[in-house]
Design a binder for these strands. Structure first.
Lengths: 150, 150
DNA sequence: CCGATTATCTCGCCGAGCGAGAGAATAGTC
DNA sequence: GACTATTCTCTCGCTCGGCGAGATAATCGG
């Protein structure tokens, strides 16, 4: 394996390094705030749904995180106990539970992503619009590649 | 938060989506091969060390994965039992244990990264060298941003 | 040589996540 | 309008990854 020094392979390794780094950062942040990595992943998913105005239930959340229903219930119990999430019955289909994030969760999300986003936005200023579009094309296609084989 | 549609923010979300996708892919692959996500992370670290010709010990590995010594020992017991890793005393400092990967581990690594790398290398062919260099600059800087605050 | 340090491992415990299945609400079907 | 099948969530019991504390063994500095 000495064909590692092609431009394509350098990008593969960079991409992997970025994911590893973000993974570690997330684990650190979670531990520092008394939650587990899964809790943070759940929170991110919930905040995404909130921002998209999408209604989310325990079932949907568990599916996104690849947890079974028992694990999802335990996860929500933890998040609810921490005052980050609120459960409420869906009046339209009373088997369902609707999940809502508390302000505290939004705040927590901001304190995790804030610095990262800040750094990345500053970074983007060093690139001109055409260059940013190249990066967007690449990452979009890479997401596609990573998504295949699910 | 309606400033999400700037080019910089689109990249932030893409980068995050890629990491999430790779995380899921890793978890699936691990489960499919009878190992745990941590085992896969360990294997990747060990294969990296192997390729770099770097000697690695339980201590170093545990540090990279943020495991304490007890967890690291248990992890290595699992990997050894699966025939993926070999432990041997360092003759120079006999307190140390040197870790070596078995061919089976290299094979496993290839079967995980092979398709991903293949897809990404193909992808790179749709970009000219100058464009790939732009992506490399961006990801390098993003890695830097993610690495700050460790 | 002897205390201090370093590297790994053992023991006991906690708790995240799983499988199985219960319970409650809804949707068809006759 | 009951009867069955389906859907969604939760409870119970268990497994096992990871932690804290501390034992053990090898090395290094005075």
């Amino acid at each position: 394996m000495n064909d590692d020094d092609t431009p394509a392979m350098r990008l593969v390794h960079l991409l992997r390094a970025v994911t590893v780094e973000l993974h570690l950062r997330g684990a650190e942040f979670a531990a520092h705030n008394g939650l587990h990595p899964t809790d943070l992943r759940a929170l991110i998913r919930l905040l995404d749904a909130e921002r998209a105005g999408e209604a989310i239930t325990p079932g949907r959340l568990g599916e996104a995180l690849r947890l079974n229903s028992a694990g999802t219930t335990a996860l929500l119990d933890r998040l609810e106990r921490l005052g980050l999430v609120r459960r409420s019955r869906d009046p339209r289909d009373r088997r369902r539970v609707l999940l809502g994030v508390e302000p505290k969760a939004v705040e927590l999300g901001r304190s995790f992503f804030g610095p990262l986003i800040g750094g990345l936005v500053d970074l983007a200023e060093e690139f001109d619009p055409a260059e940013l579009d190249v990066v967007r094309r690449y990452l979009g296609a890479a997401l596609d590649v990573a998504g295949r084989g699910a």
